[in-house]
């Protein structure tokens, strides 16, 4: 059959699909309190309305203070749109977040590693060091009773003390340079190779990869001295360093 004119139009290309990288501003969500967030967001946007007008934006759930918090994505999307932003997708969070976010019309994104733009090597003698994306967090203030800190996908370093009644968690290692009196849980996603390092152990509970020990079962000789805590053959070792 001869190719008709109309068919040739259909076959002439209207688009191409290629993989391309775009840079999006990322809204790092710290709280699930959409009400509070939206008033702060409005304030922020009002400071640079031109910059934010119709700006597509991704929602990053990695930095939630309470990683388990329920998030009202419908309200969040509405709040962002009301500020003139165009929420396009999300990354991080748990399964329940993914479902709720997708139901609110957001697509699942993966954050690219922050690699420096490829440049011609001007000084090839220099070793090429690509900084990895760092998820770790350094906390300089004391972590007080009732506070909870979780670092998804990285290490947590606390420069000060962790009070009784406080809880610190990380997917990676935990370092505490003050007195640790609260609870510390390293490798909470099940990484059994993580460790806790601490200057002065007086913890209520320590855990690595879900294996825990409570205060009562921590030997008195290990209190008040620098220790490391790790797993060996499924059992938790607390050892002086």
């Amino acid at each position: 059959m001869p190719v008709t004119h109309s068919e040739s139009v259909e076959f002439s290309q209207t688009f191409e699909i290629k993989s391309g990288a775009v840079n999006l501003p990322v809204l790092k969500l710290l709280t699930s309190d959409v009400g509070k967030l939206s008033s702060q967001l409005r304030l922020k946007v009002s400071q640079a309305p031109d910059f934010f007008r119709n700006a597509p934006m991704a929602i990053d759930l990695h930095n939630l203070v309470d990683p388990n918090a329920e998030i009202d994505f419908v309200a969040l999307v509405r709040a962002m749109r009301n500020c003139g932003l165009v929420p396009v997708g999300f990354c991080g969070g748990f399964e329940k977040h993914h479902q709720a976010a997708q139901a609110a019309g957001l697509s699942s994104l993966t954050l690219a590693r922050q690699e420096p733009p490829q440049q011609p090597q001007a000084t090839p003698t220099k070793p090429k060091v690509l900084p990895e994306e760092v998820h770790s967090r350094i906390v300089e203030q004391p972590v007080r009773s009732g506070q909870r800190i979780y670092v998804p996908g990285g290490d947590l370093v606390v420069m000060s003390q962790v009070s009784a009644g406080a809880e610190i968690m990380a997917d990676g290692n935990i370092h505490v340079y003050g007195t640790l009196r609260g609870r510390a849980l390293a490798g909470v996603q099940g990484n059994l190779d993580c460790r806790i390092f601490c200057q002065d152990l007086q913890a209520e509970l320590v855990a690595v990869g879900g294996h825990y020990r409570i205060s009562e079962n921590i030997d008195d000789s290990l209190r008040g001295v620098p220790v490391q805590i790790y797993l060996q053959d499924q059992s938790l070792i607390i050892e002086r360093i």
Binding site: Q141, V143, R144, S145, G146, Q147, S163, A164, G165, A166
Partner: peptide, 13 residues
């Protein structure tokens, strides 16, 4: 002391 510690956390956040 424990309650003060709690309050300090609230003051900070």
């Amino acid at each position: 002391v424990r309650d003060s510690d709690r309050m300090l956390g609230i003051l900070a956040s």
